[in-house]
């Protein structure tokens, strides 16, 4: 999944939103909603939870906008960071959600029913395997491969060096491979 290109009007919209312009913030929301949702979905594995959390990410972002410093991090990275913190909080506060099933995975509607069913199954298996990993491993894989961010972007969001991200990525892929193999053998 290639990352969505940055919105050239971001800086302007962000400045307006910081000044209290709700409609500008609504534009930012519409632009970043798919990416943040995708990230959250593959972290929590539940469509309803992912929608709630995604919305909350933007409410928190609105509340904290005055503290956002564009010079320190891109707006998208800042949103991912808030999303990550909310996911961590949610994992701490709640019991794990039920395993994914076909009713909670929303895939692109243009696919035919058979392809949709297959895609749901694949998404479920992947999300289940991801959930077995350590939180940092889940995060690096979601950012790198589900959201298609580069090593450098992932490093910015996770607050680590690019080298540390590579090491984490290696361990995470190895762990994921183990879980997928285990799932296939069942």
């Amino acid at each position: 999944m290639p990352p969505r290109p940055p919105n050239p009007a971001d800086a302007d919209l962000v400045a307006k939103a910081i000044a209290g312009d709700r409609e500008a913030f609504g534009d930012l929301y519409e632009h970043y909603l798919p990416a943040i949702y995708r990230y959250v979905f593959y972290r929590v594995g539940d469509a309803g939870e992912a929608e709630d959390l995604t919305e909350t990410v933007f409410v928190k972002a609105w509340e904290a906008l005055e503290r956002y410093r564009p010079t320190e991090a891109p707006f998208a990275a800042w949103l991912y960071r808030i999303a990550h913190n909310l996911v961590v909080d949610r994992h701490r506060a709640q019991k794990p959600v039920d395993p994914l099933d076909e009713h909670v995975v929303e895939v692109r509607p243009e696919a035919d029913p058979a392809a949709q069913a297959e895609a749901r199954e694949a998404a479920s298996a992947l999300a289940q395997a991801l959930k077995k990993l350590e939180p940092a491993q889940q995060e690096v894989l979601a950012l790198r491969f589900v959201n298609g961010l580069s090593h450098a972007e992932t490093a910015t969001i996770m607050g680590r060096s690019a080298g540390a991200v590579r090491v984490l990525q290696h361990r995470a892929l190895a762990a994921l491979r183990q879980w997928l193999k285990k799932a296939e053998s069942k």
Partner: peptide, 25 residues
């Protein structure tokens, strides 16, 4: 992982997402 289905919010959610958010702010 990269071939993972592109999970997207439900159509109902997307339809009302902006209005819902702006009301929550």
């Amino acid at each position: 992982l990269r071939r993972a289905p592109e999970a997207a919010p439900s159509a109902e959610f997307q339809r009302v997402a902006r209005a819902r958010l702006l009301n929550r702010l």
